[in-house]
């Protein structure tokens, strides 16, 4: 992973050609034919699976019926988009999607980086390994199981969360955590962290190993303490990785996932748990309105592209490493 990042950034730094032109392009092509040849299968793959399906976007402008052939479909223009944007719930759904995404985004980065640095500072290898293993075990549990664990932990009869809070005297009677809409985002944030923090540290731990130990030694001679070393050496050392990951993740900000919200969502917390994916499932797939599903998908893609370019541009302006 890290290698890729380095390769990409070094490729990006190739000085722009001075004597531009077809001849240069061709001579380069011949020179790098092995590389070109190697990339052919992947470009084909990319084209076949990422660009060809874009043809399906036409469905968004039809009243699509699976049984009919393309010529027989009824064209309806922007009707699906109009339905989507004029629906009261859609605004709420967008709010939920963005809120949960941002919470995941911020918490995800903060906790993963913190844990990675803490692990890096550990000297007892055995302890480090144990912590690492335990912290990334939940990543391998499927959401169906994880949701049941969360439901049980939050239940009003004998759920561990209520029991502990009662014992500490923080609450007077058990709280129906999943039955109060306002708590839902918090529950989602904590659950996501619990499930993914260990997994997310892996990439930072890998990045940390590339920092030259002599920098730490030099800092030590200069009299830097632990926190100063973290602040001045460790964090700047992994900054490129952080920035790249942030850009990539920003592009996926509308992808809050589907399973946790679907599995933990219920009547009382509906106003906070319903995200874009569930909206699409309810009003698109479940009603057999495939056109609406596609329209929502297009909308998501457009937002993602805007965010991705925006973040990349911002990184460029701030003189940071960037994706492209």
């Amino acid at each position: 992973m890290l290698k890729n990042v380095e390769v990409e950034s070094s490729v990006g730094r190739v000085p722009p050609a001075r004597k531009a032109g077809l001849s240069l392009f061709l001579s380069r092509l011949v020179k790098q034919r092995t590389l070109v040849f190697m990339s052919v299968p992947f470009i084909l793959w990319l084209f076949l699976f990422k660009y060809v399906p874009l043809w399906g976007w036409t469905i968004a402008f039809q009243n699509f019926k699976p049984a009919k052939s393309f010529g027989e479909q009824q064209w309806v223009g922007w009707k699906q988009f109009e339905f989507m944007f004029s629906d009261d719930r859609f605004l709420q759904v967008m709010r939920n999607t963005l809120a949960m995404s941002l919470i995941n985004f911020v918490l995800g980065f903060a906790t993963a980086i913190t844990l990675a640095i803490l692990l890096n500072e550990l000297r007892a290898v055995a302890f480090k390994r144990v912590v690492q293993t335990i912290s990334y075990l939940p990543h391998f549990i499927s959401w169906v199981v994880a949701a049941t664990i969360i439901q049980t932990a939050l239940s009003t009869d004998g759920g561990i969360v209520n029991e502990v809070l009662l014992a500490l005297g923080l609450i007077q009677e058990p709280v129906l955590w999943l039955g109060v809409g306002k708590y839902f985002w918090g529950i989602m944030g904590v659950s996501e962290v619990w499930k993914n923090v260990g997994w997310n540290t892996i990439i930072y731990l890998a990045a940390l190993t590339t920092i030259d130990p002599s920098q730490y030694e030099a800092a030590e001679i200069d009299g830097a303490g632990r926190f100063q070393k973290i602040w001045h050496i460790t964090l700047p050392g992994i900054r490129p990785v952080i920035v790249i990951l942030m850009i990539i993740n920003l592009g996926q900000i509308l992808e809050t996932g589907f399973e946790p919200q679907y599995l933990l969502g219920n009547g009382p917390n509906l106003d906070y748990s319903e995200n874009l994916e569930i909206f699409i499932l309810k009003y698109g797939m479940n009603l057999g309105n495939y056109s609406l599903s596609v329209a929502a998908g297009i909308f998501k893609t457009v937002v993602s592209i805007v965010l991705l370019f925006g973040a990349n541009h911002l990184a460029k302006r701030m003189g940071q490493d960037r994706l492209f």
């Binding site: 009547g267 009382p268 509906l270 106003d271 309810k282 009003y283 009603l287």
Partner: peptide, 26 residues
């Protein structure tokens, strides 16, 4: 019929009831 008002009604009314039944009762 797919996409008819009657069908959309059945999808939406469940959401309304889900939300308000819980609120009204609890």
């Amino acid at each position: 019929e797919q996409g008819s008002d009657a069908q959309i009604y059945t999808a939406k009314k469940v959401d309304v009831q889900r939300k308000y039944f819980a609120k009204i009762v609890l």
